[in-house]
Amino acid sequence: MEAFTTHTGTAVPLRRSNVDTDQIIPAVWLKQVSRTGFEKGLFAAWREDPTFVLNDPSYEGASILVSGPDFGTGSSREHAVWALQQYGFRVVIAARFGDIFRNNSTKMGLLPVVLPAERVEALQAAVEADPKLEVTVDLGERQVRWAGEVVAFEIDDYTRWRLTEGLDDIGLTLRHADDVAAYENGRQPWLPTTV
């Protein structure tokens, strides 16, 4: 996983709510068996509309997506995270996220930042007024900063540590292999196996 400490970049406002993972990456793209090439499928249907915000050249190169509430609802497809990252996003800011999407993001090093709805709106308005506005997302300080504004966000210490170190969860769990083996010895005897 790519480590995340602090990121400064420009942002793009996505003024839509309930941006489900079917919109982020339509199902037809899920047939791939590799982990790469998903940027082409990001918001594939919406990008066909020339007025869609990602087609606006003034937001070219943006690395922070600022969305309406309930971003990443629906399907568990991690391809949505891969698509956003491969397109160039490092951070998504919204008032609420789908639980599975949020979880998937933190496994991959895409930072989901929850801000109060009115702060999200303020940031969207600021970016619309100045698409080249520099926005800093500081995971160490748990802050989003732009144009003199400083807004705090919450993230648990453990996830923050894992993200800043870029640690692989599997490696961390395998350190506790003895605990897993001990647990397995005590499992209820009637539990099913698939064999």
Binding site: R77, E78, I100, N103, N104, M108, D156, L172, T173
Partner: peptide, 23 residues
């Protein structure tokens, strides 16, 4: 019973466990 992403699928395959906060 809950849905997981591909990173977590790999984690369960390798360890039969998942790190998670209780909702």
């Amino acid at each position: 019973a809950f849905g997981i992403g591909t990173s977590e699928v790999e984690h369960v395959l390798a360890t039969q466990t998942l790190p998670a906060y209780r909702p």
